[in-house]
Amino acid sequence: MWRDALLVAGKDLRVEARSRVTTNQVAPYALIVLFVFGFAFDQDQYVLTHIGPGLFWVAVLLCTLLAVQRSFSLEAADGARDGLRLSGLDGGGIFLGKAAAIAAQLVALEAVLAFGIVVLFGAHLAHPLLLLTTCALATVGLAAAGTVYGVMSAGLRVRETLLPLLLLPVAAPIVLGATQAWLAAVGLVTGSGWRWLTLLGAFAAMYLTIGVLAFGTLLEEA
């Protein structure tokens, strides 16, 4: 399983390295989303500073949708999914590989977005350890859930519209938990941010388990 995961992750990242869709399209899109938030809310720096963490995670969620759709449109082209099924790769391995590739791209996007909210919204980033742990757990959770729902909608004609409908409500706890942890970290709300991490961790563990167990079946039926 781990060998298969490495193989698939390596393939997806190599495709990304050659096609540069994430760097050339998704990253600019993420920054534009931040700009639009800036227009839509206020020029009031105070408001933006306070809602910055929430906007950050909403932007990450939107980018997750794009990354997941990209990841599975790769496999939809030219019968590649049949190729993947025919190869006899372990379902759990394919899941971990694709989720890892998506997570790697999300980490890069989060770096860009963090830079964006510091520059544009004047957010100040304190407690780097808490922030980084939050990012790590939330990213794993988003990538795992995104991969599960991505393969579920991959074979369907209505996948572009179905994926957001399925993924957004399910990912709502991640946005909630990550935002609250972050707000706590920068002192905008009282209380410890660490307990939100158990929520994020539980969510990530749950979807990793579901994905490893069910991905083979879902790929089969897609």
Partner: peptide, 21 residues
């Protein structure tokens, strides 16, 4: 099969959401 797995994915969100909120 897809629907059944989705239903479980949806349902396991319930306790997490409950804790979170």
């Amino acid at each position: 099969k897809r629907s059944a797995i989705t239903a479980l994915c949806c349902f396991v969100v319930v306790p997490v959401d409950h804790e979170a909120t």
